[in-house]
Nucleic acid binder design. Structure first.
Lengths: 151, 151
DNA sequence: GTGCAACCTCAAGATAACTTGAGGTCAAAT
DNA sequence: ATTTGACCTCAAGTTATCTTGAGGTTGCAC
């Protein structure tokens, strides 16, 4: 019975992790710096990662594709158990939350597309008349970015 | 008969354009700097915009939501006729190309979702086994960013 | 035990997309 | 005529996400 042991041979140096994920070594170090991933250190101060960190980085890559920022990703990842290597069930849970994010993105895009279809009919793209935009606009929402349009 | 005349009263100062689009004044100046939009100048060196620039800016905002960078957006906008105010037909054309971009995005997300569904079944998220990733990977594609994963 | 690729840190640079600030001008109402 | 808010330029700052470089150390293979 060879259970999931965490013996020393399973620890990966950063370059190996880079090769396996397609990330640059510098990016992984950067993520560690940001607290997205953690590493053990050898006596000689070199990083050693768990195999499960491949998944962690994979998650980061996928989540980025979905438009999440590193901060948001970190907050997602923080839902993983601390102290122990995440189990399959842990990853399933987080994967499902990612699926929801995808669903939402698709829904938003579908909405945009539908509205755009209407607009193609009139050729407008005008903030004042087009349904692409809020009707009750003209208000500063308080944030920094653009204040209405498609939110 | 009040046709679409372009007399002086139709020229908008930058602040007006900002209010109408929800953009910051500084952002509009920035876009002008980048060549995304052009302005006339008054004798006193103040910018004056055409009404049609509202659409232009609207397009920029929508295209950004779709994930295009300003450079790409500029290349889209460059398809508009030079010299004259874009007609409805011009905008319809560009809107349709935008629709295609949305379609593609949705398709890509659907694919991701489908693959993710498979992965939830196995809980893997592993670069080496999971179908989320290319099978023929392990290769540097030459670019800077992540080299495989979901492309 | 030596060589050399792979590793380390820390600071600075790169790109995108803007904002902020300083210092000054314009124009429309009073 | 004066005031005041909107406008101007240009340089520098901001946030996010990394990369690059300098200068130095480790660790594995021979």
């Amino acid at each position: 019975m060879k259970g999931p042991s965490v013996d020393k041979n399973d620890l990966l140096p950063i370059g190996e992790l880079a090769r396996r994920t397609g990330l640059a070594v510098s990016a992984i170090r950067f993520y560690e710096d940001k607290g997205l991933i953690q590493a053990f250190r050898t006596m000689g101060n070199q990083r050693r990662f768990l195999r499960s960190d491949i998944r962690r980085l994979s998650f980061i890559l996928i989540a980025q594709k979905l438009g999440l920022g590193l901060a948001e990703i970190e907050s997602e990842l923080s839902k993983l158990p601390q102290g122990r290597t995440p189990t399959l069930a842990d990853w399933q849970k987080i994967s499902r939350s990612m699926r929801k994010a995808i669903d939402q993105k698709i829904a938003l895009l579908s909405l945009t597309r539908r509205k755009l279809d209407e607009c193609i009919g009139c050729g407008c793209l005008s903030l004042e008349r087009c349904r692409l935009y809020n009707r009750d606009d003209r208000a500063g929402t308080g944030g920094t970015g653009p204040r209405f349009v498609l939110d």
